[in-house]
Design a protein around this nucleic acid. Structure first.
Lengths: 215, 215
DNA sequence: GGTTGTGAACAAATTCACAGCG
DNA sequence: CGCTGTGAATTTGTTCACAACC
C-alpha cells in the first residue's frame, strides 16, 4: 500500500487519463521506461508539466533514467480508480443515447453500459445494440442490482434537470451531462459536461479572430 | 460599427456559448433585460464572472438596469462568428460518425453537416441519415464547393493523425477531434478535442476520492 | 436605489531553472 | 552526466469591493 500524495489539482486530474493512454501505448510496444520529455510529446504537453503532474502521485521516477512504464501505469490506474469496472446507465434512448450505447469506447475502458433508461413505453423492454431498455421507475433497483455508479444524461435539454434529479434520487453520485443545458446537482454529486455544439462555437470564434495556433 | 474589445481570455471564450444559450432562452420567453446575477444563475457561474466576461465584449450593459437581451445576444453571436453557417465535414462514417451525423444539435446551431468522409468503398456514394458519403480524395473539392470550414474527426485512434493531416491539407483550418488520441496540427490550425472516456475517468477519480461537491 | 464595469487582491495553473540523486 | 522533483517566478483566471452611472 503506502501513499504520499494528497490534493491533486483539478487540471492535473484531467490530464492523468491522457498520460495513462500514452503509457498503455508504451506497454503495448514493450517499452520499459519513459522520460518526462517523451511522455510529454505523446500527451501533447510540455515536460515540466508532466513532471509536476506525476509528482502529485508520488515519486515514481528515477533520476537519470525516467519512469518505469508498467509501474507508473499501475499507480496511475489505481489513483484514477480504474482497477475496477464502473457500470453506467445511459438516460435517454434517443439518437444520442443509442449512439453512446453503441460506442465501444466506454466498455473498452472499464465503463460497461449496464442499461438504457427511457420514458417511452414502446422502447421499454426492448434491447438496443444489445443493451436492455428500462423505465425510469426501474432505475433505483438497477442501481442496487447492477452496481451502477455513473449516469450519462443523453436526453433533450428540456427534461435534463428532471432526469438528473431522478438519477441523484436513485443513488447515483456521478453524472456526465450531454444535454446542452446547465444542470444543478446537490453537494456530494460529481458533475461533468460534454457540450458538442459548444466546442464548435469556440472553433467558430477562433476562426473569425484568426488568432492563435492551438486552442 | 465600432468595436472596442481585444484579446478575450480563453476561459471567457469557452463560456460565451453558455451565456448565449441562456440569452436564447430569455429571448424565447420575451424577457427584455437581464442582470448579471440572473444570467449567472442560468449559466451556472457567479455574477462577477459574468460581468467580467461580458466586459471583454464591450460595455453593453446599463447600470441600474442590466443587459438588453436581444442586443447582447446579437453582439455575442457576432463576436462568436455565429451570424453565418459553418458547414462541417465528419471524417469517418463508423458508429460515432454516423451518430454525430444523425445528431441534430449541430445543424440546429449553425453547423450543418455537409458530408461524411469514409475510406470504405462500399459506403462511398451512399447516404447516411440523408448525408452523402464521399471518399477522402473528394475532400479538397468539397471544401471548395461547399465552403466546409470545420473537420470533425470520428475515426479510430489509429488513423486519426493521418486523417487530420489530410483535413489540413484539404484547406480546413479548424478540427474537432473525437478520436481518443492526441493529434498534432500545424500553426494556424485550431484544434479542440472531446474525449468521452476521459470524462468518465475523471468522474471515476473523484468517486474514489470522495472529494468535492462539483467537478 | 440598483447594477454595471473594473482596478486590486487573491488563487490556480504553468513554466522556469536548478539542486539532488541515480 | 542525465533526468527527476520542486521551490520560485510568472502567467492566467477568479473573486472582491466599490466608484461610476442610470
Amino acid at each position: 500500500m503506502g501513499d504520499g500524495a494528497r490534493h491533486i489539482p483539478e487540471a492535473t486530474v484531467s490530464r492523468l487519463p491522457v498520460y495513462l493512454r500514452s503509457l498503455a501505448e508504451l506497454l503495448d510496444d514493450n517499452v520499459p521506461t519513459v522520460s518526462s520529455e517523451r511522455l510529454a510529446e505523446m500527451a501533447g504537453v510540455n515536460a515540466a508539466k508532466v513532471r509536476k503532474d506525476l509528482s502529485y502521485l508520488g515519486s515514481y521516477g528515477t533520476r537519470g533514467v525516467g519512469y518505469e512504464v508498467e509501474y507508473l501505469a499501475f499507480q496511475m490506474s489505481r489513483e484514477l480508480g480504474l482497477t475496477r469496472d464502473w457500470p453506467v446507465a445511459i438516460m435517454g434512448a434517443g439518437n444520442l443515447g443509442q449512439a453512446l450505447a453503441n460506442y465501444g469506447g466506454f466498455t473498452d475502458r472499464g465503463f460497461p453500459v449496464a442499461c438504457l433508461i427511457d420514458a417511452d413505453e414502446s422502447k421499454v423492454g426492448t434491447r438496443i445494440h444489445g443493451i436492455p431498455v428500462y423505465a425510469p421507475a426501474d432505475l433505483p433497483g438497477l442501481v442496487q442490482e447492477l452496481g451502477i455508479s455513473i449516469g450519462i444524461i443523453a436526453t433533450p435539454a428540456t427534461v435534463a434537470q428532471a432526469v438528473a434529479d431522478h438519477v441523484v434520487a436513485s443513488g447515483i453520485k456521478s453524472i456526465l451531462n450531454f444535454a446542452p443545458t446547465v444542470i444543478n446537482v446537490p453537494e456530494g454529486t460529481f458533475l461533468r459536461k460534454v457540450d458538442l455544439a459548444l466546442e464548435l462555437q469556440v472553433l467558430s470564434f477562433y476562426q473569425e479572430h484568426r488568432t492563435p495556433d492551438r486552442v
